[in-house]
Structures are given as structure tokens and as C-alpha cells.
Design a binder for these strands. Structure first.
Length: 432
RNA sequence: GGAGAAGUACCCAAGCCGGUCGAAGGGGACGGUUUGCUAAACCGUUAGUGGGGGCAACUCCAGCGAGGGUUCGAAUCCCUCCUUCUCCGCCA
């Protein structure tokens, strides 16, 4: 959610920022409605003040033995007026909130306008691997080595699911261990959150109401639940859980920044997004990811974003995978984000880079939605924190990259050094 | 899953047969007096927050788990939901 005060005082600045995201808006009608809304609030609050005043007098009048029937009748009218005006204000509030909910976050000033085509590569690590033999697709490799069982994944869950087996499961787990070890070494707190979250979590993250259809929702029990009959959903990323950890809290300034990481599978519908070139495990309904998350003071969030990107990059570098880092144009950032870097790893079979981490600064957008604040010692006043998130990392594109980058002529795969201690010391994945 | 009980400010807790109750009391915290220092004692302050109006001083509204309802008036009565505790059942 954007600061309504900012829209009131600098509508043109906000309009321009949103335009860079490709979001066109005219605040004229909004500001006029906002004015009427505040007028109505003023009126109804004056009525309430009168009601309170007279209500305090009634017992005294009674005590003095005066007849209050006329006063009661008059107050009945006042109360009816309050009720009617309250409803009108509630309608205006709801309309205003609905409008504010549609507004994406404002990109930072250094984020360029436009979509994907304006993304800029800021760093490159390593080079594209060259093979002296016909390089194979990761699906062929993992199937021939018995690492991933696609057919049975489909049997169990349908298209978009797979089963890790033997060294495949072990490699997946080794990756997660490698990530966890790094984050612990960097002083991040390890979180294992619930995977089933309530409605408010989706709202705070900025995913609801717009992206409700992208997640798996759980139908409420008979008689319970919200309008649509859904009260909970399965998280599409651990970010959704982590951003809600401190919802409705006022934090100590001294305790900031909070640095968290969480492991969860991510569950996504990915409806209609299947593409032939993404066969395998590039885009599934369930994938494993470790998510990093920070709560910072506003003045610290830019540095925190660089820290998060750096951490994600080092993880990929530790695996020896060729990758690049891009700064996204405004239109390619998620709605809730002010600035985003993507880390993309080279997938030889696709002749392309695929995202393995996205690091973003949400500014106070999520903090406003979820009311996450800290008390500024200098002023004693609460302020909204900034929230940042970054994958660190998603495995489902790392594992294909590892097997394709490390493949040998004999069909075996070299295991990255850093993972071997979780692979029983094995150096290679071989046909058993 | 069933049956009970409870949710009040930073914490504990009174109020709960409706009306100067936005809320007694205690603890804690903060400030002060006393003091060689500390402690103790005593005095004082302590609803934060969100939202209106006002240049401002200031003022008003909301708020006793959440949301509705009854009433001129609700912490107090009614309904729904959430959470916690106790007991029973079931179970990894």
C-alpha cells in the first residue's frame, strides 16, 4: 500500500513513478472522493461528540428527578443519523481501500521505466561451459542417472510434479544444507514456518487480492470461513510467511535489522504457463526454496538489498555455475517491489539464463499492509519498517544447471565440491 | 472432535444485575525528594495506537480478543468468529 499522504501532497510524483511501471492512473477523482470522505468523517464525529456529551448528562438529569423522555427521543434521532452516516463513511472507506489496493509499489528513482527489454545486466560470473561432446538435456541426464522420476511424479500429482530419488534426493538435500550452512554463518535466523497460511498473510505480502488465483486455496469447513469459502492457502513462497512474522507489531529500533531465512517448498498453480522449452523441472507446481528476508530501518534497506544479492550470488558462485545479475526495469518488478535484482544461471540446453534468485526491496509497501513498524528512538514515534526478500536459493533450476554444467562424456556428472560432504564424499553422480 | 473456563492498558488484575468507567488496585518503567553511594521509603508520570479538525496551542472520534446486534447510552446484555487454558476422545 502506498502512503495516502504522499498521494495527497504529491500526486504527480506518484503518477509518474507508477507510469514507469506501466501503470496509468489519474488521481483526480480519487482526491475528490477523499475530500468528501473526510468531510463525512468530520460530520459524523461531530454527531458522536454530541451523543457522548448528552449521554453523560442523562444520568444527572435523572438523578435530579427531571423528565428525560424528550431528550431520549431527540438522541434517538441523533443515533439514527450517526448510523446512516457511519455506513456512508464505511462505504467510502471500502472504496478508497479497494482503489489503494490496486496500486503497485512506487519504483525507486534509479529504476528505469519499461519492461523486460530494459533490464540491465550489471554483473556476470564465469563463462558458458564448452563441451567436447554432444551436451545432453538435464531431463535426459537426471533420468538416465535415476535422480528424478518424472513419470511417477505425474502419476502422483499430475503434470508439473516430479519425484527426487536416490542421489537425486540426496543432491537436492545437499543443496539445501549448503544454503542453510551459509546463511547460519552469516548470522541469519533459521525459520521453519507453517505452509498453510491465512488470508491476512496473502494480503500483507501484496499477493492478495490480485494473485489469489495463482495459489492453491483450501476450502473452509462447513459454516466457517470467508465469503468465497476459502480461509487458507498453501504458500507460494516462504516470503509470504516471513513477511507476516511481525505483522501488527512495533519493533525495537535497536533490534533491527531482523535477518531471517526459511526453507519451504513453494506451491504454485502456474496455470497456463507450460512451455515446451521448460520441460523438466524449470517450472513446477512444487519446488524447494530457501528464502532470505530482512526487516530494516528505511535508511538501511538499500544496503540490505545489496547484501542479499551478494549472498545469493556467492551461493551460485560456490557451485561454480555461470550466471549473471540483472537489475530489472520498473515494469518487470513485482507489484509490491521498488527495486529488484535477478540472478540467472546459464542452462546450456535452453541456451538461456533462468532465474534462480530474485532479490527485492519492498520499501514500506508490505509494512503498511501488515502494519510492521519500529519505534524511532530519536522521536519516540513508530515508523514503518522496510522489508526485503531474496531467494537463497531455489533448487529447481540449480539442479538442472549442476547436471548440465558438470556432465561428462561418459554420462556421469561432477558434483560441485561444496556439496560433497552431504553426498557421502562422492565426487560424481554415476549410473548405479 | 466433544465438554467446560477465560481473553481488560508494558505485565498481573478489579469491574461484568448497562449511565461522570477509557477503566480501581498492584507490579514494572520513567521523573523527582531524601542519600557519601546503592537500596529502601515517599511524591509524581505512565494508552499505546489509528483517524478527523486546526497555522498553532489544542481539540474531537474510535478503541476493554475480532466482527456484528440490542439500547438514548455497552468493558458490562445477545449472536458469530479467533485465541488460550483444563478435562475427555482420537492420533503421527
Amino acid at each position: 500500500m502506498l502512503d495516502i499522504q504522499l498521494i495527497r501532497t504529491q500526486p504527480e510524483y506518484v503518477r509518474e513513478g507508477l507510469a514507469r511501471k506501466g501503470f496509468a492512473v489519474d488521481f483526480g477523482p480519487f482526491l475528490e472522493k477523499d475530500r468528501l470522505r473526510r468531510e463525512a468523517i468530520f460530520e459524523v464525529e461531530n454527531l458522536k461528540a454530541e451523543k457522548n456529551r448528552v449521554s453523560a448528562e442523562i444520568p444527572q438529569l435523572k438523578k435530579a428527578g427531571k423528565d428525560v423522555t424528550e431528550t431520549l427521543a431527540r438522541m434517538k434521532l441523533v443515533s439514527d443519523g450517526i448510523r446512516a452516516k457511519d455506513e456512508a463513511v464505511a462505504r467510502m472507506d471500502a472504496e478508497q481501500q479497494a482503489f489503494l489496493d490496486t496500486l503497485p509499489n512506487l519504483p525507486f528513482d534509479d529504476v528505469v521505466a519499461g519492461g523486460k527489454e530494459n533490464n540491465r545486466v550489471v554483473r556476470v560470473f564465469g563463462e558458458k561451459p564448452q563441451f567436447a561432446f554432444p551436451a545432453r538435456h538435464h531431463v535426459d541426464i537426471v533420468e538416465s542417472l535415476g535422480l528424478i522420476d518424472y513419470a511417477r511424479g505425474v502419476k502422483l500429482g499430475g503434470n508439473g510434479f516430479w519425484v527426487y530419488r536416490r542421489d537425486g534426493a540426496r543432491l537436492e538435500w545437499a543443496l539445501l544444507n549448503y544454503f542453510i550452512e551459509q546463511h547460519l554463518a552469516d548470522g541469519y535466523e533459521f525459520i521453519l514456518p507453517p505452509h498453510i497460511l491465512n488470508e491476512a498473510c496473502g494480503y500483507t505480502a501484496g499477493q492478495f487480492p490480485k494473485f489469489r488465483d495463482d495459489v492453491f486455496q483450501l476450502r473452509a469447513d462447513e459454516g466457517a470461513g470467508g465469503d468465497a469459502g476459502f480461509t487458507h492457502f498453501i504458500l507460494p513462497t516462504a516470503e509470504t510467511a516471513l513477511v507476516n512474522l511481525h505483522r501488527d507489531e512495533i519493533l525495537d529500533e535497536d533490534a533491527l535489522p531482523f535477518k531471517y531465512f526459511a526453507y519451504t517448498p513453494c506451491y504454485r498453480k502456474e496455470a497456463g504457463s507450460y512451455r515446451a522449452e521448460e520441460r523438466g523441472m524449470i517450472r513446477g507446481h512444487q519446488f524447494n526454496k530457501i528464502e532470505m528476508f530482512q526487516y530494516t530501518r528505511p535508511e538501511d534497506s538499500e544496503a540490505a538489498l545489496e547484501e542479499l544479492v551478494g549472498k545469493a550470488e556467492r551461493l551460485v558462485q560456490g557451485l561454480g555455475l555461470h550466471h549473471r545479475v540483472s537489475k530489472l526495469a520498473a515494469g518487470d518488478c513485482s507489484d509490491a517491489m521498488r527495486k529488484t535484482y535477478d540472478i540467472e544461471v546459464w542452462i546450456p540446453s535452453m541456451n538461456d539464463y533462468k532465474e534462480v534468485s530474485s532479490a527485492s526491496n519492498a520499501g514500506d509497501y508490505q509494512a503498511r499492509r501488515g502494519s510492521m513498524r519500529f519505534r524511532r528512538k530519536e522521536t519516540g514515534r513508530p515508523e514503518f519498517v522496510h522489508t526485503l526478500n531474496a531467494s537463497g536459493l531455489a533448487t529447481s533450476r540449480i539442479l538442472p544447471a549442476i547436471v548440465e554444467h558438470g556432465q561428462c562424456a561418459d554420462g556421469s556428472v561432477v558434483i560441485p565440491e561444496v556439496l560433497r560432504k552431504w553426498m557421502g564424499g562422492q565426487e560424481r553422480l554415476e549410473k548405479k
